[in-house]
């Protein structure tokens, strides 16, 4: 009797968990694919098709009307000789400094200071209020941030120049956005202001999962604030640092609105960036093929950086999990 029951139980267990080769086991899983259908069709129409069209157009000469004329790699060859193209990507590097490197560095120090200094000695309430101040520019539309700053940085009667005059530094007054030697640095300054809140908030969230005992142990061993920051904080939130660097670098390469509103790429192309360059090539010069080539180069760079960033992030997370286990 017992034998039959056991046999029956084993048999039924078997039928409830059919082997992976059994074709019936796929059917319930794959009917879930229906839920993906609307999303897949929408992505096809709005992302895949336009992206492929753009890539195809980059191999043609096209004014936006009539038939595109196939020119092979001619656009890309022209890009290599185009000083404007190289300048725009050089300015992109400056944007990476202003939107990824500097905000990450400042964000790390601020997050550590707010989290384990202000938070511990003055209460989390003050830390939260201060964090909110730093984050505020992040919710502002970039067009509005551009209006605010272009007026603050205006040469005549702008607040910055008025302030410099008021404190007796009148000789430091500049045409901040109109001088080709300074404009790029002014835009960079504005972008640091815009971007800073993002790393700060991510790092402060990351710090919450660091084991406080690590700090206590280090403190007992006589490690100062700076050494604890270097050996504990930085090591523990490395995944967050990679995420922030990846996201901010991509955002820096895509920057458009700020340049459009602050300088329109000027004066004399001093603040031109790839996205603005492709925008004017598309819609003002209507050299659609050439514009498509610019945006394709930008896309390739961004995708490569994304993959590197994702890889670093996964590796850091794995390493951390390994260390914990």
């Amino acid at each position: 009797m017992t034998v039959t029951v056991e046999k029956g139980a084993r048999a039924s267990r078997k039928s409830r968990h059919p082997g992976p080769r059994n074709p019936r086991s796929h059917r319930p899983r794959d009917s879930y694919a229906l839920f993906l259908l609307p999303g897949a069709l929408a992505a096809l129409a709005v992302i895949v098709v336009p992206f492929l069209m753009n890539t195809a157009v980059s191999f043609t000469s096209w004014q936006g009307v009539g038939d595109p004329k196939w020119t092979g790699l001619a656009n890309y060859r022209d890009l290599l000789d185009d000083a404007e193209f190289w300048a725009s990507f050089r300015h992109s590097l400056f944007m990476v400094v202003a939107m990824a490197a500097v905000p990450t560095l400042i964000g790390l120090v601020l997050a550590a200071a707010l989290f384990d200094y202000i938070g511990k000695h003055f209460g989390t309430r003050i830390a939260t209020i201060l964090r909110a101040c730093f984050y505020l520019p992040q919710v502002l539309p970039i067009a509005v941030a551009g209006i605010v700053w272009s007026w603050i940085l205006a040469p005549d009667n702008g607040s910055l120049n008025a302030l410099l005059k008021a404190v007796g530094l009148g000789s430091w007054q500049q045409d901040w956005l109109g001088d080709p030697d300074i404009a790029l640095y002014s835009v960079m300054g504005v972008m640091v202001w815009v971007q800073l809140g993002f790393p700060l908030v991510v790092f402060m969230a990351g710090l919450q999962r660091v084991d406080p005992q690590l700090y206590e142990a280090a403190e007992l061993d006589g490690a100062g604030w700076w050494r604890r920051f270097w050996h504990i904080t930085l090591q523990q939130i490395r995944p967050e640092i990679y995420v922030v660097l990846t996201w901010c670098t991509i955002a820096a390469l895509k920057v458009f609105g700020a340049v459009y509103v602050l300088t329109k790429g000027g004066p004399g192309g001093a603040t031109d960036v790839p996205s603005y360059f492709s925008f004017t090539t598309f819609f003002e010069k209507t050299q659609v093929g050439y514009g498509a080539a610019i945006s394709t180069v930008l896309t390739v760079i961004i995708l490569v950086l994304s993959l590197i960033g994702l890889k670093l992030q996964t590796r850091a997370e794995d390493a951390e999990e390994g260390a914990r286990a």
């Binding site: 879930y32 992206f51 753009n54 394709t296």
Partner: peptide, 29 residues
């Protein structure tokens, strides 16, 4: 939840779609 086959690739597609610069879509759109 459905864990459809090839979900890693589907997910990778959405991640890349999200990273794509709008400049590469704007003219065709």
């Amino acid at each position: 939840i459905g864990r459809i086959r090839g979900r890693t690739w589907v997910l990778a597609f959405f991640v890349l779609a999200n990273m794509l610069p709008q400049e590469a879509l704007v003219y065709p759109i």
